[in-house]
Amino acid sequence: MPKKKTSKALMPTKSTAPTLPQRFAIADTEIRPEQFYRLPGRQPTERGPWSDEPGKIAWKDPETGLDCIILRQENGTLSGYVSVDLDHPLHAYNHDALPRAVRNASHGGVDYAEPCRNYGPEAVRVCHIRPTGTPSHAPGKAEHDDKWWFGFRTSHPGDLVPTGIKPDRYREEGETYRDMHYVFAEVRSLARALKAFAYRPVEGSSKPLQIGSRAIDEDQA
């Protein structure tokens, strides 16, 4: 029996990499995905706002030029990640050592800081693999990735964790599922904060940092 390449029902414990879309509508914009995966093994079984979301999407933020990822976790929630290059002043920083302006730029605060994960399936690792001249999920030799990734999760108090919930308890009082549109906006906020910090004024300057459209005083950094 021939396999259906785009079926999400195949191998429910594994990932599926459908044809990489040229455009993906999200939040109030469109992005050009560099990775796009379905993760049936991490998809909550109950029907909800997560049902039609991909499991992983990676792209380059056009405003900041930074690489970004949204990845579904084993508990069904989404996490967001942004990477910086070796020449970024925060490269190799632990998440708890970040300046406040960056640490608090995304939902719940940055709580992930790691180098590229160059092990395990590409569909679930926080790393960009771009074989030259081929889609990111195609076979081939991966480029070296020395980026440092910062990230955040959406499983804090008040966040709805969809895996394991009862059908009649999708929303406990005060709990909200942080969907892909929400996480995208938070990823973009983190990317702007990281970009702004790279261009922060020299010591002694009275000019505030600029993160997106919001000025931040030096004492918040």
Results as ranks from 00 to 15, higher is better:
1 M>S: 06
10 L>M: 15
13 T>N: 13
13 T>P: 11
16 T>H: 06
18 P>M: 14
22 Q>F: 03
25 A>I: 03
28 D>F: 09
32 R>G: 13
33 P>A: 09
36 F>G: 04
51 S>R: 06
51 S>Q: 10
51 S>G: 10
54 P>M: 13
54 P>S: 15
59 W>L: 10
60 K>Y: 09
61 D>Y: 04
61 D>I: 01
64 T>S: 10
66 L>C: 13
66 L>G: 13
69 I>F: 00
71 L>H: 07
72 R>Y: 11
81 Y>C: 02
86 L>N: 14
88 H>M: 08
91 H>D: 09
95 H>V: 09
96 D>M: 12
98 L>E: 11
99 P>N: 08
100 R>K: 15
102 V>Q: 05
105 A>D: 09
105 A>H: 05
106 S>A: 15
108 G>S: 13
110 V>K: 05
112 Y>V: 15
115 P>R: 09
115 P>S: 05
119 Y>F: 07
121 P>S: 15
124 V>Q: 06
125 R>G: 03
125 R>L: 08
125 R>A: 09
127 C>P: 00
130 R>H: 11
131 P>W: 01
133 G>P: 09
136 S>R: 00
148 W>S: 14
149 W>Q: 15
150 F>T: 15
152 F>Q: 00
153 R>Q: 06
155 S>I: 08
156 H>M: 02
156 H>Q: 07
157 P>Y: 01
162 P>R: 02
166 K>H: 05
167 P>G: 14
170 Y>F: 12
173 E>L: 12
173 E>T: 05
174 G>Q: 12
175 E>L: 11
175 E>M: 12
176 T>Y: 00
176 T>W: 01
181 H>F: 01
182 Y>P: 08
182 Y>E: 05
185 A>L: 13
188 R>N: 11
189 S>T: 04
190 L>F: 01
192 R>L: 14
194 L>W: 02
197 F>M: 14
198 A>G: 14
199 Y>C: 06
199 Y>R: 09
199 Y>E: 12
202 V>I: 05
203 E>A: 10
205 S>Q: 00
207 K>R: 01
208 P>A: 05
211 I>A: 08
211 I>Q: 13
212 G>P: 00
214 R>A: 01
214 R>M: 01
215 A>K: 04
216 I>F: 12
217 D>V: 13
220 Q>S: 05
